[in-house]
Simulated assay, not measured.
Amino acid sequence: MSDALDVRQALPEAHRWLLETYPRLRWHDAELGEVARFWLQMHGGFRQKQAAMAGQVAAWHAGGDLVSLHRGLIPTLQAYLQHLDGHHRVETGHYFPVMRRVEPRITAGIDLLDADHDAIHGQLEALFKAGLGFHQALASGAPDAADHAAHLADALERASRQTDRHLEDEEDIVIPLITRHADAFAH
């Protein structure tokens, strides 16, 4: 099984060892620290934006018009792209180095997550370009605006699939690690 994000079906077993001590069923316990809860809230926000955008695309596919799709989708897409890019920058620049230091055995797992960020960045670039193409086509009255919307919908589906996989895998590494080493992540 490949560890590449675009083909990975689950977090590789070698990176799941912290889940034995801190399984997902315990993540609602009082022992889940502030940073871990915040991390899960951030990820929940990304999932909500993805679901909102998928709903807007579905409404368009069900007979909605391009103007309504644009009005709902483009602002949500912009916020999603900015938020996810910023979140990844903080993780890669701040949290991941701390995690490598406090739990060296998980370094390969953190490296996997960092590689995911690179793959997702490519998806974010594709989403930005597709969103801009749709916006420009609709604003100029181009006859192929629906084609641009379809291209954006496809790019969104691909990006969401990879982002969902990454969010779940990251949580399976990060939440147990933050819980285990709460003092290193206390503010």
Rank of each mutant, 00 (worst) to 15 (best):
P23D: 12
L124M: 11
R47T: 09
L32N: 06
H15P: 00
E168V: 14
A146W: 02
A139E: 13
R161G: 00
A59W: 07
L5F: 07
E171S: 13
L81D: 01
G63K: 03
A59Y: 07
L177C: 12
G93S: 06
T163R: 07
I120L: 15
A51W: 05
V90Q: 11
G93E: 06
L152K: 03
A51F: 06
R24Y: 06
F134E: 03
H181L: 11
G93C: 05
V98S: 05
L112W: 02
A36S: 13
L19S: 14
T76E: 12
E91F: 05
V98A: 07
G44Y: 12
W17P: 00
F185I: 12
R89A: 10
R180Y: 02
F185K: 13
D154R: 10
P75A: 12
E13I: 09
R16G: 03
H166P: 03
R16M: 08
A108F: 05
H181R: 15
D183E: 15
R8W: 03
G45Q: 13
L138E: 11
D144R: 07
P97S: 08
A14K: 14
A130G: 03
R161M: 05
Y95A: 11
R101P: 00
H151E: 07
R8E: 07
A14F: 03
R161I: 02
R100Q: 11
F185Y: 13
H135P: 00
A108V: 04
A155Q: 08
D3S: 07
A139F: 04
D3W: 05
R8D: 04
A186L: 14
L124C: 06
H94F: 10
Y95C: 04
T76F: 01
G122W: 08
H181K: 15
A54W: 01
P143E: 15
R101Y: 06
Y80L: 15
D144W: 09
V174W: 08
V57G: 01
A30E: 15
A145F: 05
R37P: 01
V7Y: 02
R24D: 11
P75I: 09
S160P: 00
L77I: 03
G33Y: 09
A62D: 14
Q9E: 13
L5T: 04
S140M: 08
L11V: 08
R47C: 05
F46E: 08
L138P: 00
L32R: 13
Q56H: 10
Q50K: 04
F185T: 08
K129V: 01
L113G: 05
E171D: 15
I178E: 08
